[in-house]
Design a protein around this nucleic acid. Structure first.
Length: 422
RNA sequence: GGAGGAUUCGCCUAGUGGCCUAGGGCGCACGAUUGGAAAUCGUGUUGGGGGCAACCCCUCGCGGGUUCAAAUCCCGCAUCCUCCGCCA
């Protein structure tokens, strides 16, 4: 959630941000009104309550007739206090609801517009040129006995798959390589839970616009996370972090679950868009003034890891309309997918400023008191899309695939070779 | 799944309806003392909100209820601990 003080002091800035996102600027006025109503209701309750407390202590000391008279007055007051409290509670709930509906204020440097209005920052690496007709990752996966989509659909439905044989080895190699990279860079490795309570889901902003993409377990009141950003953001929920401990930098490895509602017909072939995949996600808690520098660091890690895998990619500055509720700014790295002739998103890093921390009550304490921290997240390695990029970019005419040098020790071989069909 | 017990400030603890405006200890911070330190003494030390301010309100795991008044009584829930059963 955003800072109510910012909203009071500079509502135009928030309206402008909403407009840039293509969201409703009218929410700002709803919130301003609710805030005013809450403050006046709170004032009424507080003065009545103060009177009740002071009379209460007189009742304790009084005796006889005096006491009876006081009791009559306090009885009446009690009902008024109760009513005023209910009013003030309701007004607070209105504010909370309005506050949760409002997205983070966008960063001034983020390009304004929709999905297509991103700013290209750079292109890195060389796109492969083939003197043969390149196969797509589905054909390669079949040829190598690495990806079994037919049986994935049989067992679990569309958008599910089995990694088999060298596919399983490659997937694990990517993860282990990413973990080792993270540890070398001083990030703390984590294996988080992937079922979380509503507070964690709500706090990270995934129950708003993105709710339809979340798997819910209603019998247990839990949600399956779409990214380990969720458990990691909530990891320090309700805590006050010592200023000396910041920044806290984690790299969490977990499966991710996405319903992909509203994506019917998109990327139906292959494993670009799936319901379940493994990912190593970086997550940072830092002082708000350090957030931009940390964001640059996360982007640098993403680029370094893609470089390690020798993949050609580009970096874009995501436009305001495509940021998601929590992010003020977002950079995507997109790997080249030869058979699509396109760059496709493989990693994404978001600066959520203090938006998530405010919802999750994650603060830091220093000389100036307590205040919310900033949170940032970034993909280090999303397995299926990296498998796609590796298979397609490094394929040879005979259907074999060269393993990038950094992964060779983890995969245990220098090339993936075609196998007989099973 | 069943039976018990617990949850109060960073930590330990007092508290069984009004003198709790939550006491004490440890730790921490600042000050006094000292050549400097230890010890000692003093002061401060949950978090959130409202108000220009003085100051006020909320906060004893969470949510309800009883009462003029709840840390305290009642109901529900959560988490942790112990034991039993079942399972990996």
């Amino acid at each position: 959630m955003i800072d109510l003080r910012l909203l009071r002091d500079d509502p135009d800035a928030v309206r402008a941000s909403q407009r840039a996102r293509g969201e409703d600027p009218g929410l700002v006025d709803v919130l301003l009104e609710a805030d005013a109503a809450r403050r006046s209701a709170l004032g009424r309750f507080e003065s009545l309550r103060a009177e009740q407390k002071s009379l209460g202590s007189q009742v304790a000391k009084a005796k006889g007739e005096e006491k009876a008279a006081l009791l009559a007055r306090t009885k009446e007051l009690s009902a008024q206090v109760k009513a005023a409290e209910a009013e003030s509670t309701a007004a607070s709930a209105d504010v909370d609801r309005a506050l949760l509906a409002l997205s983070n204020v966008v960063h001034p440097a983020a390009p304004v517009g929709g999905e297509e209005d991103f700013r290209l920052i750079e292109e890195v690496g060389e796109k492969p040129s083939f003197d043969f007709e390149p196969r797509d990752h589905v054909d390669l996966g079949k040829l190598l006995g690495a990806i079994d989509l037919d049986r994935g659909a049989k067992v679990s439905g569309s958008r599910f798959y089995f990694f088999v044989g060298v596919g399983a080895l490659l997937a694990n190699a990517i993860v282990r390589c990413a973990q080792d990279y993270a540890v070398r860079e001083g990030l703390i490795p984590v294996l988080p839970p992937v079922l979380v309570r509503p507070e964690a889901m709500e706090g990270t902003g995934f129950l708003g616009q993105a709710a339809e993409n979340v798997y819910a377990m209603p019998d247990d009141g839990l949600y399956l996370v779409g990214t380990s950003e969720v458990p990691m953001a909530a990891y320090h929920m309700d805590e006050i972090l010592d200023a000396g401990a910041l920044p806290l930098r984690y790299a969490a490895y977990s499966p991710c679950f996405r319903r992909e509602a509203g994506a019917h017909g998109r990327d139906t072939r292959g494993i670009i868009r799936v319901h379940q995949f493994d990912k190593v996600e970086m997550f940072v808690f830092c002082r708000p003034e350090d957030a931009e520098a940390e964001h640059e660091k996360l982007l640098a890690h993403e680029k370094a890891f893609l470089g390690l895998l020798e993949l050609p990619y580009r970096v874009i500055d995501v436009a305001t309309g495509d940021l998601g509720a929590s992010a003020a700014r977002k950079f995507d790295c997109e790997a080249w997918v030869p058979t699509q002739g396109k760059y496709r998103e493989v990693t994404s890093t978001s600066n959520c400023t203090d938006f998530q921390a405010r919802r999750l009550k994650i603060r830091t304490r220093d000389e100036s008191g307590t205040r919310p921290v900033a949170t940032l997240n970034g993909t280090l390695a999303a397995v299926p899309r990296l498998v796609v990029a590796i298979l397609e970019n490094f394929q040879q005419a005979d259907g074999s695939v060269r393993v990038p040098a950094a992964l060779v020790p983890y995969v245990g071989r220098e090339a993936l070779e075609p196998v007989a069909a099973r």
